[in-house]
Design a protein around this nucleic acid. Structure first.
Lengths: 239, 239
DNA sequence: CCAATAGTGTCTATTAGACAGTATGCG
DNA sequence: CGCATACTGTCTAATAGACACTATTGG
């Protein structure tokens, strides 16, 4: 009989072959009417020179979870933290990375373009790619599939929540949220439906400010501090 | 400059400290009016003797993905494959396993009780625990949190799909599906609403058989082969 | 025929879609 | 004052909830 203490004293984690573990993030933003995903150029082998998702290995000395790893890697690239971050899926198998059996924990993130554009613009190994241009790229590893999973999550969740607010600056108008939603869904939505949802959600509050848009001034809104995302029980665009 | 081939030749995966990776599954079934989760008694350290989720290490020689690992471990315990299996979430951190920084990929699974009861009944280290009795158990590691995540997924998805069919035998009546749904949601639903959804989903077909229940015979239904799950655009019980 | 369960008809409630109508601000 | 854009009112459509009604089967 071995006690747990004795067992742990003699435990050697390297005795069994273990997969290569990485953490990758699909970070979306909206810019100039386009939904864009953040890509980084791989500086080292394998697949050196290819574009792929921002990510890398867990630093078990510093990261308290894979969320921390995702945040750390994104902060390195964008300069700031995403406004939204949730786990997406894991992808695994013997073939997806030439170094061997590998597993990546993927995260799904949103950020407003104005919040991170300055930093991205100054680095040459990171860029925003419009998702409609993805077809022309051969991404590293299976990152194309991970981006597709992220797109699917984004579009689904946009149908039953106000998730697109996390792609907008701190304050925004109804029209901006409508445009963000329409870009993500790829089709127009009813402004009235959106405004009804904003009221029902309890997620947003007026700042009291207005902005001129060339005609009647539009009220500015922001996320209520400490209020969680609201999930609706019906979808938009339920054909 | 190193080519990818040269790089891979010299690559040593064990150079960097890597997390301990496991795969665990939350397998639910319905039995005697109760929602139950499969637990196994840990035969070895750490946490020997505690009950926890069926799972274990990836066998990189045999498993083509963590789905394969989940299936392999479930098959060892239940004797057969679950009717539903989807990825749930990953849980990670330095404290969740006493052996060190660890990560588990959790899977969410459903099975009909009649399909696996015979095998479970013959093994002493596995059992079905009604979820309402979970409070009295100290599960191994953070498995209590993983079970809660599974329960949440099950209840959410039951609101916008016919997921409970995967807890039923191959053929079943409307009344059985209604009862399964009510046990999962913990409250009664309208039979008419359920039947409307069955028709609209296109997921089920009549077998042509009927069963006597003590009164009028009930028609039997089964999942149409090759037909995927249907997601509704509105929830049941949208208070 | 009666009891019990299966299955249907149909009215109401809720919320999205459509779109017309009103309000406001600037030239 | 006119126009563009912001915002509102209100009708329709789709689908869930409620519940009464009919159908079938065994005794």
């Amino acid at each position: 009989m071995t006690t747990e203490a004795e067992y742990l004293k003699n435990y050697d984690a390297s005795r069994f072959p273990s997969p290569l573990v990485t953490v990758d993030s699909v970070l979306f933003t909206l810019h100039q009417g386009e939904l864009c995903v953040l890509l980084v150029e791989r500086a080292s082998q394998p697949q050196q020179g290819r574009w792929g998702l921002p990510g890398g290995f867990i630093d078990i000395k510093r990261d308290a979870s894979t969320r921390d790893t995702a945040l750390r890697k994104l902060t390195e690239k964008t300069g700031i933290s995403p406004s939204w971050l949730e786990q997406l899926d894991t992808f695994s198998g013997p073939e997806r990375d030439p170094r061997g059996w590998s597993l990546t924990v993927s995260w799904f993130a949103l950020i407003s373009w104005v919040d991170c554009a300055p930093h991205i613009a100054t680095v040459s190994d990171a860029k925003w790619l419009p998702v409609r241009s993805l077809a022309g790229y051969e991404l590293a590893f299976d990152h194309a599939a991970i981006v597709q999973a992220g797109l699917h999550r984004l579009r689904q969740k946009t149908m039953y929540s106000l998730l697109p607010v996390y792609c907008l600056p701190e304050t925004f108008t109804h029209a901006q949220l409508q445009e963000a939603t329409e870009i993500i869904l790829g089709q127009p939505i009813q402004r009235k439906s959106l405004i009804r949802r904003i009221e029902a959600s309890g997620m947003l509050e007026e700042t009291g400010e207005s902005v001129a848009t060339g005609a009647r001034k539009a009220r500015l809104w922001r996320r209520k501090p400490g209020v969680d995302i609201h999930l609706f029980s019906r979808n938009l665009l339920a054909e």
